[in-house]
Amino acid sequence: QVATSTVRILGMTCQSCVKSIEDRISNLKGIISMKVSLEQGSATVKYVPSVVCLQQVCHQIGDMGFEASIAE
C-alpha cells in the first residue's frame, strides 16, 4: 500500500537545498518518490506507511537544518 502526503519545509533558499533534501529523503527505505517545491515551501512524498512514517521524514529534514512539518 502506497500513500501520498505533503510536508511543509521552512528554510529552503535555493535549488541546492531542494536537491539535498530530495537526495537524502529518496534514499530512505520505504520512500518511493519525493518532489520538493522551493516556491511552495513543501514536498510531496510518496511512501509505504508500513515501512516509513512521515515523522521520520520530517526528522531527517530537521537534521539537515530545515523546519519540516506534516501539512494538514
Rank of each mutant, 00 (worst) to 15 (best):
S26W: 04
Q1P: 15
S26L: 09
T4P: 02
Y47L: 02
I9Q: 00
L54T: 01
V18Q: 05
R24N: 08
V18D: 01
S20N: 11
V2L: 06
I32T: 02
A71D: 14
V45G: 02
C58W: 06
Q56S: 09
Q15W: 08
A43I: 07
A68I: 07
D63L: 15
Q1C: 15
P49D: 04
M64G: 02
R8M: 12
A43L: 07
A43K: 01
S42F: 10
F66L: 03
I70Q: 05
C53Y: 05
V36R: 00
D63G: 08
L54C: 05
V45D: 03
S5Q: 08
K19M: 08
C53E: 10
T4Y: 09
A71K: 08
P49C: 06
T13W: 15
A68E: 02
R24M: 09
G41K: 12
G62A: 14
V45Y: 00
M12R: 01
Q40N: 14
P49I: 07
S5D: 12
V36W: 00
V52F: 01
Q1H: 13
N27I: 12
I32V: 10
M34E: 00
I9D: 04
T6W: 11
C17H: 15
S16Y: 06
F66G: 02
G41W: 06
D63I: 12
Q55Y: 13
C53H: 13
Q1L: 04
T6D: 06
N27M: 14
Q15F: 10
I21E: 02
V51T: 05
I21V: 05
V36F: 02
V18M: 04
Q56V: 10
Q1G: 08
C14Y: 00
A3Q: 10
G41S: 13
G30C: 09
S69P: 03
E39C: 08
V36H: 00
T13K: 14
Q55E: 11
R8K: 10
I70H: 06
C53L: 08
G41I: 05
V2M: 07
L28D: 01
R8I: 12
V57D: 02
L28C: 05
Q60H: 10
Y47V: 02
E22C: 06
M12V: 05
M34D: 00
G41V: 04
A68T: 10
S16V: 11
V7S: 00
M12N: 02
Q15P: 09
M34G: 00
C53S: 14
L28K: 02
D23K: 11
S33D: 09
K29I: 13
L54V: 07
L54H: 02
M34H: 00
E22G: 03
E67P: 08
C14R: 00
S42Y: 10
I25M: 07
V36Y: 00
V18R: 05
K19T: 12
S42E: 12
T44I: 14
F66Y: 12
T13R: 14
V18W: 05
N27E: 11
T13N: 06
V18C: 04
S26R: 11
F66R: 03
Q55F: 11
E67H: 12
S50R: 05
A68C: 15
L54I: 14
D23M: 10
T4M: 10
R24F: 07
T13P: 01
C17M: 06
S50I: 06
M12I: 06
P49E: 07
K19F: 08
I21A: 01
E67I: 12
S42A: 11
E67Y: 12
V36L: 03
V52I: 15
V51K: 07
D63N: 12
I70F: 10
T13A: 06
C17K: 03
I61Q: 04
L10G: 11
V7F: 10
C53M: 08
S69C: 10
T44F: 11
S20F: 07
C58E: 09
V36G: 01
K35D: 07
K35P: 01
D23P: 00
V51F: 06
K46S: 15
S5N: 10
Q15V: 11
A71L: 14
I61S: 02
E72S: 12
M64S: 01
Q55A: 11
L28T: 06
Q60I: 15
H59C: 08
Q60A: 15
E67S: 11
G62R: 15
C14A: 03
T4L: 10
V18L: 05
C58A: 11
C17F: 05
C17Y: 05
S20Y: 07
M34L: 09
I70G: 04
A43M: 08
I61F: 04
I32Q: 01
I9W: 03
R8C: 13
G65A: 03
S50Y: 06
T44D: 05
N27T: 11
L28Y: 04
K29P: 13
I61Y: 04
F66E: 02
Q1V: 08
G11Q: 03
S37F: 09
L38N: 00
E72P: 11
A3R: 09
A71N: 11
C58M: 13
S20I: 10
S69Q: 10
L10C: 08
V52L: 08
G65K: 01
A71G: 09
I9T: 00
L38E: 01
K29L: 13
E67T: 11
S5R: 12
E39A: 10
R8Y: 12
S42P: 03
G62Q: 15
S37N: 13
S5P: 00
E67D: 10
E22P: 01
Q55T: 09
K46P: 04
S16E: 14
I70L: 11
N27P: 09
M34R: 00
V45P: 01
I31W: 02
S50T: 09
E67Q: 12
S42Q: 11
A43H: 02
S33R: 06
Q60M: 14
N27L: 14
S37R: 08
F66V: 03
V2I: 10
V52M: 06
A3C: 15
A3T: 13
G41Q: 15
C14V: 04
D23G: 07
C14M: 03
G65P: 02
V51M: 14
S20R: 15
S5I: 09
K35W: 07
V7G: 00
V52P: 00
Q56D: 13
A71C: 12
I31P: 00
S42R: 10
I70T: 08
I61N: 02
R24W: 07
Q15S: 10
A68P: 05
L54A: 03
S16I: 11
R24C: 07
S20E: 15
Q56H: 13
I31K: 00
N27D: 10
I32G: 00
S26M: 12
E72R: 09
T13G: 03
S37D: 11
V52N: 00
S37I: 07
S33C: 08
S20C: 07
A71W: 13
G30N: 02
M64L: 13
A68W: 07
A68D: 03
S16Q: 13
G62W: 14
V48N: 15
I21W: 03
R24Q: 11
N27K: 14
Q15R: 08
K19V: 10
Q40E: 11
Q55D: 10
R8T: 10
I32H: 03
E39G: 07
K19C: 05
F66P: 01
M64K: 02
S5C: 15
V51R: 04
L28F: 05
S50L: 08
I31C: 04
E39N: 08
I31R: 00
M12C: 06
T6I: 13
N27F: 09
I70D: 04
K29E: 13
I25T: 03
T13V: 12
E72Y: 12
E39M: 08
S37V: 06
E67R: 12
S5W: 05
K35T: 09
E39S: 09
M64V: 03
M64F: 04
T6Q: 09
I70W: 08
R24A: 10
S26T: 11
V18A: 15
V52E: 01
